[in-house]
Design a protein around this nucleic acid. Structure first.
Lengths: 185, 185
DNA sequence: ACCCCATGCCCAGAAATCAGGCATGGGGAA
DNA sequence: TTCCCCATGCCTGATTTCTGGGCATGGGGT
C-alpha cells in the first residue's frame, strides 16, 4: 500500500533542495511543485523540519542498504562518497542552513555504520581487546565524518572521491597497517 | 491534481511490457507490481485493452510534443526512430500480440504527423497543387509506416536509425529532390 | 505601525483506495 | 471430454486519503 502523494511530496522537496537553499523553500513551493493540496502535506508530515528529517534519514538508510556488507576500507569510503556525491546539491543546501545538525547527525550514522561494518570483517586477535576495537572504530568514524565536513566547508570544490581514495590507505588503515588510529585517540 | 496511482499503474504496465509478451501480463501482475489494489485498476481503467490504448496513445503524443516542428526529413525520421527505439521492447511485445492493431494505428498517427508537419515547411509552389501535396504526404506517411513495420517483422535486428538515415534522402526526399513520391502513387 | 505571507490547524465533503466476495468463461490438466 | 484453476469484471461497504475553504498566529519587510 504505497502512498504516492507522500512520495511525490518527498520527491519535490528533494528536487527543490537541489535547486535552492532550504530556507527558500516553503510548504507552498513543495505542494505546488507536485500539484498536491497544501493540506495533504500536513496530512502526511508534521512540518517541514519533520520532512527534512525523514528525507535525510532515508537517503542514509538507502545507502546503507545498498552496502549490506563493507568488505574493505575502499568500499566503506565508496559508500560515503556515493552518498555525498549523488545528493551533492541537496546536501549543500541542507548543510548551509539552520538545519545543518540534521545532516550531520545522519552523516555520522552512516560513518558509524561503515566503520563498524568493516570492523566486523577484521579477524579477532588483530586488536588487543574489545575496548581497543571500540576506540578505533570511533576514531575512524570521526575521521570519515570530519573529512566530509571539511569537504563541505571547502565548498565541495575538490574531488572527494579521489581524496577518499587517497586517504583510505593513510588514515583508514587498521592497526596492522598503520598506527594512526591507536596513536591519535 | 495528478493521479499518482493511475500513473503508477501505467508505469508498471509499461515496465512489464518491456519484460514479457502482452498476453502474459494480467491485471493482477500490474497491480502487484505497483502495490495497488486490483479494484483500483478497474476504478481508473475500463480494462487491459483500454490501458494499452491509452499507453500507446501517450507514447506517440509525447513524441509529437517533443517535436513541435519538423524542419527536415532527418528530424522527421528522428522522431519516429526515437519512438521505436526508446520503447523498443515494449513495442516488440505489443506488436507481436493480438493487439497489433493498437500499435499500428498510433504509429500511423505519428507518421502522419511527421510527414504533414514537414510538408508545412515546404514552400508553396514546389508542388503543383493541393491535391498533389496530399497525395505525396500520404505516400510518404505510408513509406515511413511501412519501414517501421518491416523493421519489426525482421525482428528489429538491424539498426533502424542508420537505415532511416540512409533512406531519408532516397524515398523521403520531396519532389524537387526525387521523383519517387510522384511516380509511385 | 502596518501589511503580507507562510505557517499550522480545523472542518466537512469529495475522491480514491481498500478488503472481500461473486459469477463468468477460457485454458490446461486429468 | 470433463473438470478445475484462475483471470476477469463487477459489486458493496468501509476506510483512507485528498481537497477546498477558512481562520488565527507570528515573523519579516515596507
Amino acid at each position: 500500500m504505497p502512498n504516492f502523494t507522500r512520495n511525490a511530496i518527498k520527491d519535490s522537496f528533494l528536487k527543490l533542495l537541489s535547486q535552492r537553499p532550504l530556507d527558500k523553500i516553503t510548504v507552498k513551493d513543495i505542494v505546488e511543485d507536485c500539484g498536491v493540496n497544501r493540506n495533504s502535506f500536513y496530512y502526511h508530515f508534521e512540518d517541514l523540519p519533520a520532512l527534512l528529517e525523514e528525507i535525510v534519514a532515508e537517503l542514509v538508510s538507502s545507502m546503507i542498504e545498498r552496502h549490506p556488507t563493507i568488505d574493505s576500507v575502499e568500499e566503506g569510503c565508496g559508500a560515503i562518497v556515493e552518498f555525498v556525491t549523488q545528493n551533492r546539491r541537496a546536501i549543500y543546501h541542507i548543510y548551509n542552513s539552520l538545519s545543518r545538525d540534521v545532516f550531520e547527525r545522519h552523516l555520522m550514522k552512516l560513518c558509524q555504520y561503515v566503520v563498524s561494518a568493516y570492523a566486523e570483517t577484521v579477524p579477532a586477535g588483530l586488536l588487543s581487546d574489545e575496548v581497543d576495537k571500540a576506540v578505533v572504530v570511533r576514531f575512524h568514524r570521526c575521521a570519515l565524518f570530519g573529512t566530509v565536513i571539511d569537504w563541505l566547508n571547502e565548498g565541495m570544490h575538490y574531488d572527494i572521491a579521489a581524496y577518499f581514495h587517497r586517504i583510505s590507505r593513510l588514515r583508514l588503515g587498521w592497526p596492522e597497517n598503520s598506527d594512526a588510529g591507536a596513536s591519535c585517540v
